[in-house]
């Protein structure tokens, strides 16, 4: 599902955010990514989700070669994956329902289908009652769950989650992780960045450690 080799990412500065990263994740795996702040977790996810281009190396995700992807193919690749952004990336002028429905709208689903599927996902993240609110009028945790719902609504083959429980209380965090487990059980590959070491310990999943832009551990 994910195959990275010799990935470098250098931001202007220059900041060497990723240095010679090699990584392989199989279809259906559930993998945690941990590391201190500034280690390069978000940067790695940006490379995997075609949010940004790597400086060098090769990236294969879900059958797409992201180093050579054409502008025409980018949307099709992005429809195959779901991403929970650390900063959510919700549109402030659209309701929670509309935000969550967007991945289905852009691929041209029928309104009835959209209605049904969005309601279902909002139910799963406990936001059904907030469907008609605007993002600015709900709590940070609720915004985070909206972002989770939007990443799951189109049942992607790969879910990339950048600190999906960062704003949630422990109980809700557990609920969300259970939800991600269920999604994984249905065949989606799940890759989660987190600072929550207790949760990582409890869940006993493959865990990658990143530090200063390099993978320094891969615990199975």
């Amino acid at each position: 599902m994910i195959n990275l080799s010799h990935i470098y990412k250098t931001y202007t500065g220059p900041v060497h955010a990723l240095k010679n990263v090699d990584l392989k994740i199989d279809k259906g795996e559930f993998v945690f990514l941990t590391g201190p702040s500034g280690a390069g977790k978000t940067t790695l996810f940006k490379m995997l989700s075609a949010y940004d281009r790597a400086s060098s190396g090769s990236i294969d995700v879900a059958g797409y070669n992201l180093m050579g992807i054409t502008p025409k193919d980018i949307p099709h690749f992005r429809r195959r994956i779901g991403v929970i952004y650390q900063d959510f990336k919700l549109l402030k002028d659209r309701t929670i329902f509309e935000n969550v429905a967007m991945p289905l709208i852009v691929r041209g689903d029928r309104p009835q289908q959209i209605q049904r599927r969005v309601s279902e996902v909002l139910e799963n993240v406990g936001l059904f009652s907030k469907a008609q609110q605007l993002p600015d009028f709900i709590s940070g945790g609720e915004q985070q769950r909206t972002a989770i719902a939007r990443a799951l609504v189109h049942q992607p083959g790969l879910l990339i989650a950048d600190e999906p429980t960062g704003n949630l209380d422990p109980e809700l965090s557990e609920d969300i992780m259970d939800l991600l487990d269920r999604v994984c059980a249905q065949g989606t590959t799940v890759f989660v960045a987190t600072h929550d070491h207790d949760m990582v310990k409890r869940r006993k999943r493959r865990t990658l450690q990143i530090k200063d832009g390099q993978i320094v551990g891969d615990l199975r």
Binding site: I74, P75, H76, R78, R79, M102, V106, R107, R150
Partner: peptide, 16 residues
């Protein structure tokens, strides 16, 4: 531009 960015990220085509 934020709207365009987000639409791109969720896979909207150029025409869309």
């Amino acid at each position: 531009r934020e709207e365009i960015e987000v639409l791109e990220l969720i896979g909207a085509t150029r025409a869309h």
